[in-house]
Simulated scan of single mutants.
Amino acid sequence: MTSHATRVVVSYPADLSDWGRFQVEKPSFRAYLTKTLGEVREGDEREEFVGVGCCGDSLDVPLRIEAVEGGPEVTRDTEVEYSVREACGIEGGWRVQSAGGPTA
């Protein structure tokens, strides 16, 4: 086992908006996670701020660590993958970004 995580799988809820998914899956957000997650274990949960919409609403996304390969320490060399888990009723207030509301 290495001292750092070689790969982590991070999940977000199925009802995260398209805009929210775009923000979370951007290379810059993955890089942010490799700098800020620190030590993780399977099942850890945390909310992460992903951006401010054009109306000033902010979106915090509940993320969960689904799997960790290697050691517990996330570093810049750790590969970050995503999975989608069950919906949790997340409301992002992104009606301006999407005509149908937060999940369209």
Rank of each mutant, 00 (worst) to 15 (best):
2 T>H: 08
6 T>V: 15
6 T>D: 09
6 T>P: 05
7 R>C: 12
7 R>P: 05
10 V>Q: 13
12 Y>I: 09
15 D>R: 13
17 S>D: 12
17 S>G: 15
18 D>P: 03
21 R>I: 11
23 Q>H: 09
23 Q>A: 12
24 V>K: 06
27 P>E: 11
29 F>A: 03
31 A>P: 02
31 A>E: 15
34 T>E: 02
35 K>R: 15
35 K>M: 04
35 K>L: 15
35 K>N: 06
36 T>P: 00
36 T>H: 05
36 T>V: 05
37 L>H: 00
39 E>Y: 02
40 V>L: 00
42 E>I: 04
42 E>P: 01
43 G>R: 02
43 G>N: 01
43 G>F: 00
45 E>I: 04
46 R>N: 04
47 E>D: 14
47 E>S: 09
48 E>K: 13
48 E>C: 06
49 F>W: 10
49 F>D: 10
51 G>C: 11
52 V>H: 03
52 V>Y: 02
53 G>M: 01
55 C>V: 04
55 C>G: 00
56 G>E: 02
56 G>Y: 02
57 D>A: 04
58 S>Y: 01
58 S>E: 02
58 S>L: 00
59 L>D: 02
59 L>M: 01
61 V>I: 15
62 P>Q: 14
63 L>T: 00
63 L>I: 12
63 L>W: 04
66 E>C: 06
66 E>Q: 15
67 A>L: 14
67 A>W: 06
68 V>E: 13
68 V>S: 12
69 E>P: 05
70 G>Q: 06
74 V>W: 08
74 V>A: 05
76 R>T: 11
78 T>S: 06
78 T>Q: 03
78 T>M: 03
78 T>F: 05
79 E>Y: 01
82 Y>S: 00
82 Y>I: 02
84 V>W: 06
85 R>N: 11
87 A>Y: 13
87 A>L: 10
87 A>W: 12
90 I>K: 08
90 I>Y: 11
90 I>F: 12
90 I>H: 15
91 E>G: 10
91 E>K: 10
92 G>N: 08
92 G>Q: 09
93 G>R: 11
93 G>N: 06
94 W>I: 09
95 R>C: 12
96 V>D: 06
97 Q>T: 04
99 A>G: 03
100 G>S: 05
102 P>H: 15
102 P>N: 13
103 T>F: 14
